[in-house]
Simulated scan of single mutants.
Amino acid sequence: MDAYQMITFIKELERLKDTTRTAYMRSGRRESVAEHSWRLAMFAFALSDQFPELDTKRVLIMCLVHDLGEAYDGDISATVQVDQKEKVQKEEEAVQRLTSSLGEKGKHDILTICQEYNRGYTKEAKFVKALDKMETIIQHTQGTNPPGFDYEFNLTYGKEYVKDQAIMKSIRDEIDKETIKKMNEEA
């Protein structure tokens, strides 16, 4: 890989700074995909000592690349029912497009981690999926959401990813308490 290819890739990543998610910040502004991915990586890093069995480097990379596929078509809310297989295929094609300047090895390495996350078959992918759902809900409770926001959806969203580990369940229980508090404040 040469310098030009790397710079081309880094410039293309700006799309994720501009691509907004369906979550709102405290200011009322919509969160970007890049902001979500950064905070997810920090969440994983902060918990890394609790999970020594995980490959922390792989987890952090997965946090940073898990939503690269949203660079062209954006974020689709979990509340919107879509064909998951089609969504994943489209996102993986977007990752290939986004990483095209990296050459075959770079493209392959990033796509492989995205596929691992999407399929959820490793302990690292399951961990990142759990944190991804919880980070999203934290943003929903922290943000200034539009009227009629569906907080109730958050009480079940992603629960299947935290059921087997006490620390994750404990964090999720606190997040659910915050969700219920937010629901009551806005009722």
Rank of each mutant, 00 (worst) to 15 (best):
residue 2 D to L: 01
residue 2 D to C: 11
residue 3 A to Q: 11
residue 4 Y to K: 14
residue 7 I to C: 12
residue 12 E to Q: 14
residue 13 L to A: 07
residue 15 R to G: 08
residue 17 K to V: 11
residue 19 T to L: 07
residue 21 R to T: 10
residue 21 R to N: 02
residue 28 G to K: 04
residue 29 R to L: 12
residue 31 E to I: 09
residue 33 V to R: 04
residue 33 V to H: 05
residue 34 A to Q: 13
residue 36 H to A: 10
residue 36 H to N: 06
residue 38 W to D: 02
residue 39 R to H: 13
residue 39 R to A: 06
residue 39 R to P: 00
residue 40 L to E: 04
residue 42 M to P: 02
residue 42 M to N: 13
residue 43 F to A: 02
residue 44 A to R: 00
residue 47 L to A: 08
residue 47 L to K: 07
residue 48 S to C: 09
residue 49 D to T: 12
residue 49 D to Y: 13
residue 50 Q to F: 04
residue 52 P to N: 06
residue 53 E to H: 08
residue 55 D to P: 02
residue 58 R to T: 06
residue 59 V to N: 01
residue 60 L to I: 05
residue 61 I to T: 01
residue 62 M to D: 04
residue 62 M to F: 01
residue 65 V to N: 00
residue 67 D to W: 02
residue 69 G to T: 07
residue 72 Y to M: 08
residue 72 Y to P: 00
residue 74 G to I: 04
residue 75 D to T: 06
residue 78 A to W: 02
residue 79 T to Q: 14
residue 79 T to M: 14
residue 81 Q to N: 14
residue 83 D to E: 15
residue 84 Q to H: 10
residue 84 Q to T: 07
residue 85 K to Y: 11
residue 87 K to T: 07
residue 88 V to I: 13
residue 90 K to A: 11
residue 91 E to C: 06
residue 92 E to N: 14
residue 93 E to N: 11
residue 94 A to S: 15
residue 102 L to D: 09
residue 102 L to H: 08
residue 103 G to C: 04
residue 108 H to D: 06
residue 108 H to Q: 11
residue 111 L to F: 08
residue 112 T to A: 14
residue 112 T to W: 05
residue 115 Q to T: 11
residue 116 E to F: 06
residue 116 E to V: 03
residue 118 N to C: 09
residue 120 G to A: 07
residue 121 Y to L: 12
residue 124 E to Y: 05
residue 125 A to L: 03
residue 127 F to N: 04
residue 127 F to D: 00
residue 129 K to Y: 05
residue 131 L to A: 02
residue 132 D to K: 09
residue 134 M to V: 07
residue 138 I to H: 07
residue 142 Q to P: 07
residue 143 G to H: 09
residue 145 N to W: 07
residue 146 P to T: 09
residue 146 P to N: 05
residue 148 G to Q: 12
residue 148 G to T: 11
residue 149 F to N: 08
residue 151 Y to P: 06
residue 152 E to P: 04
residue 154 N to G: 14
residue 154 N to T: 07
residue 155 L to G: 11
residue 157 Y to W: 09
residue 158 G to R: 00
residue 161 Y to N: 00
residue 161 Y to M: 03
residue 162 V to M: 01
residue 163 K to V: 12
residue 163 K to E: 13
residue 165 Q to I: 09
residue 166 A to H: 03
residue 167 I to L: 05
residue 168 M to Q: 06
residue 168 M to H: 03
residue 171 I to K: 00
residue 172 R to F: 01
residue 176 D to F: 10
residue 176 D to G: 10
residue 177 K to N: 13
residue 178 E to C: 13
residue 181 K to G: 08
residue 182 K to F: 10
residue 183 M to C: 06
residue 184 N to C: 10
residue 184 N to H: 13
residue 184 N to E: 15
residue 185 E to A: 15
residue 185 E to S: 15
residue 185 E to Q: 15
residue 187 A to G: 15
